Computed example of a mutant assay.
Amino acid sequence: MHRFIPHVTVATVVEDQGRFLLVEEYADGKRVLNQPAGHLEANESLLQAALRETLEETGWEVELTGVTGIYLYTAPSNGVTYQRVCFAARPLRHRPELALDDGIIGPQWLSREELDARREQWRSELVPRCIDDYLAHGGGPLSLIRD
């Protein structure tokens, strides 16, 4: 019997003056845009994973301010189901001297309108959905996340 095991991922919606921190990266040989995001690793909390992934993919240290949403998404490209816990965050400090993860082209700050104009580059429909949920309600308290 095949056991269903979703992949747990984290993402951050980082806003600064109406612009959002996105990651331009390669996925399946194509340049795409995504939130700073990645897989939860062994022995780390969801909060630690979100901070780590944001730093590794963008060079930005951030402060998590809320929980934007929890999403279940099955990628049409590979049939894998991901459970994404998305956090709201504010930027603290850019560390451009840090090497970014493999496959990362670099960080991009885009308005919601600029992101919409680049629809063909969205890694998935979760990219605008997380931002729209953030814009609609900001985020729930971080105390919702328990270790």
Rank of each mutant, 00 (worst) to 15 (best):
R84D: 12
V85G: 04
C86A: 15
R90P: 00
L92I: 15
H94L: 06
R95D: 06
E97V: 04
A99N: 15
D102A: 15
D102P: 09
G103A: 14
G103R: 15
G106E: 02
G106P: 01
G106V: 11
Q108G: 01
S111M: 12
S111Q: 11
R112D: 09
R112C: 05
E113G: 09
R118D: 04
R118N: 07
R119Q: 10
R119P: 06
R119E: 09
E120L: 11
E120D: 13
Q121C: 06
R123Q: 14
S124C: 08
S124M: 00
S124T: 15
S124D: 04
E125F: 07
E125P: 09
E125Q: 13
L126V: 11
V127C: 01
V127D: 00
V127Y: 02
V127W: 02
V127Q: 01
P128S: 11
R129N: 08
R129K: 15
C130Q: 14
C130P: 03
I131W: 01
I131H: 00
D132C: 11
D133Y: 06
Y134I: 07
L135M: 14
L135P: 07
A136F: 10
H137E: 14
G138Y: 00
G138V: 01
G138K: 03
G139S: 11
G140R: 05
G140N: 04
G140I: 00
P141L: 13
L142S: 03
L142C: 06
L142H: 02
L144F: 09
L144C: 07
L144T: 09
I145E: 10
R146P: 00
